[in-house]
């Protein structure tokens, strides 16, 4: 059991369409589900986890329907985004309870193994209520791993984690993927997905915007026209020098703003060109700010690309 198939899936709430005719196949390895907040990532993950019925289309795990089929949980481990667990339990009690619910032969041993995998033995006998965000996340991971699932679904697992916890979880997920498990995690942060996932599915406004290797998607993202707002000691001279180079496509002198609006078509070339030209001409740069770097604009570019 390793392949999740989402086939022409839509989900609407009243007259709001959260997921719009999405088709994707998630196989072994680490897949990142990338998209801005509100794009429908959680809705998709909830449908993959069997907690939400698709309004149209089907979600299947190796051919078995996920909705209303509790047997699929023998193969799926879920790490929910929400914080609440059984906070009055210790991590060990919590993970043991999860093992029992899975009907495992030796719940104690399975729980010990899962807690060791996430390196939580040091705090396993403290109530979950006393845990930091990162420790909670690891306890949740242990509960999801206790039955050795072949599919792991994680909803925004890095939210609120500090950098060290983030690295630790990434390392763990990478290992899970390398072991041949199907690992799917959602994120709205490109860098997170890029560092971890070999395969990316991009969702924007409920639609499946892009799919594939992260390098391909990264190139799509960096090759789009970049816009900058630049203020300098001599805007006209700077404009003249910049437009002579092939990395810029258009430069506008904005008199009201007393600034240059520059459209660059070669991201790498332009970032190298601007400081070099300024230095050579003795022009001082006061402001260099990307004017369309918001994630939403990156994503909306992807949708039209």
């Amino acid at each position: 059991m390793t392949t999740l198939s989402i086939d022409h899936v839509s989900r609407w709430f009243g007259n709001v369409v959260a997921v719009n005719d999405v088709t994707m196949t998630i196989g072994p390895g680490v897949t990142g589900l990338l998209g801005p907040n509100g794009a429908g990532k959680s809705t998709l993950i909830n449908m993959m986890g069997g907690f939400l019925a698709p309004s149209a289309g089907t979600v299947t795990l190796d051919g078995a329907t996920v909705w209303r089929n509790e047997q699929v949980y023998r193969h799926i481990g879920i790490v929910p985004e929400r914080e609440a667990m059984y906070d009055f339990l210790t991590a060990r009690e919590f993970v043991v309870a999860n093992a029992e619910l899975h009907g495992l032969a030796d719940p104690g041993a399975a729980a010990a193994r899962a807690l060791a995998t996430v390196e939580m033995e040091f705090a396993q006998d403290r109530p979950v209520a006393t845990y930091s965000k990162g420790m909670r996340q690891r306890a949740k991971m242990a509960s999801a791993l206790v039955h050795d699932p072949s599919v792991l679904l994680l909803d925004e697992p890095f939210n609120g984690m500090d950098p060290r916890q983030r690295l630790h979880l990434m390392e763990l997920l990478r290992r899970m993927g390398a072991e041949g498990r199907t690992v799917l995690f959602s994120s709205h942060i490109l860098e997170e997905v890029e560092q971890l996932a070999s395969h990316i599915e991009v969702v924007v406004a409920g639609r499946h915007a892009a799919s594939g290797d992260f390098r391909k998607i990264r190139r799509l993202m960096t090759d789009r026209p970049h816009r900058y707002l630049v203020r300098s000691s001599d805007d006209r001279a700077l404009a003249a020098a910049l437009i002579a180079d092939g990395s810029t496509a258009a430069i506008e002198l904005d008199w009201k703003e007393r600034a240059l609006r520059i459209q660059a078509i070669d991201f790498a070339g332009f970032t190298e060109l601007l400081p070099r030209v300024a230095r050579e001409r003795g022009i001082r740069l006061y402001t260099v700010s990307p004017s369309d770097e918001s994630l939403e604009s990156v994503f909306s570019y992807l949708v039209t690309a």
């Binding site: 986890g49 907690f51 509790e70 609440a84 667990m85 619910l101 899975h102 509960s143």
Partner: peptide
């Protein structure tokens, strides 16, 4: 309310 029911639901236990 707090969503922790998910840990019971995501199990091969009949609802």
């Amino acid at each position: 309310d707090d969503g922790s029911i998910i840990y019971l639901l995501a199990k091969p236990v009949r609802r």
